[in-house]
Amino acid sequence: MTKNIDQKQNFLKGIIKENPVFIMLLGMCPTLGVTSSAFNGLGMGVATLFVLLMSNIVVSLIKTQIPSKVRIPAFIIIIASFVTIVEMVLEAFIPFLYEQLGIFIPLIVVNCLILGRAESFASKNNLWSSIVDALGMGIGFIIALTVLGATREILGSGSIFEMKFVSEDANTFILFILPPGAFIALAYLSVLFNKISIKTFS
């Protein structure tokens, strides 16, 4: 690899310019499925960051050994191994989160974000750039999921990170913690995100 990548740009692109959720629309299933509270969103984001980071590291290290014809199955096996690790660790140490995230933990395997980064970045760049790329993308994903989860939790249950700030019998927009709320909240958040990023960067 002779080309030099500006690591700061490389890191920031995942958070803003190529934000996986708001801009690239990658990994939408967990984004919509688990964000009924800020804590769930954060947990899912961290689990995904771990798998993304590890798979980017491994793919980048062994990229010259993998024949290009079987690279996709090879990437999938690498990703699936780390997902299995995450699944077992969560079940053993954070059973509460394991219950909450449910089916979406094994489904990290098919999160297009992870396979997408392995294919389009880690298999073409050196180890250090791949780590920075994974951190940027993963943190962008965490931010998106936590913000979406927090928005839904504030509107839907009147609390944030399980801390209630309205009285017990107050009426909240329960719609936002039900499935339709996920779509609606994400729709308006992406309008807002576009508006802010256009204003700041042009």
């Binding site: 629309l25 719609l175 039900l178 499935p179 339709p180 709320g181 996920a182 779509f183 609606i184 994400l186 729709a187 308006y188 992406s190 309008v191 576009n194 508006k195």
Partner: peptide, 21 residues
Amino acid sequence: EGMKGVPINLLVAGLLSLAFL
């Protein structure tokens, strides 16, 4: 203008999901 593309599609999906609720 701001709703074009992804946001309006998500909103439609949201209403559809509301109907299925």
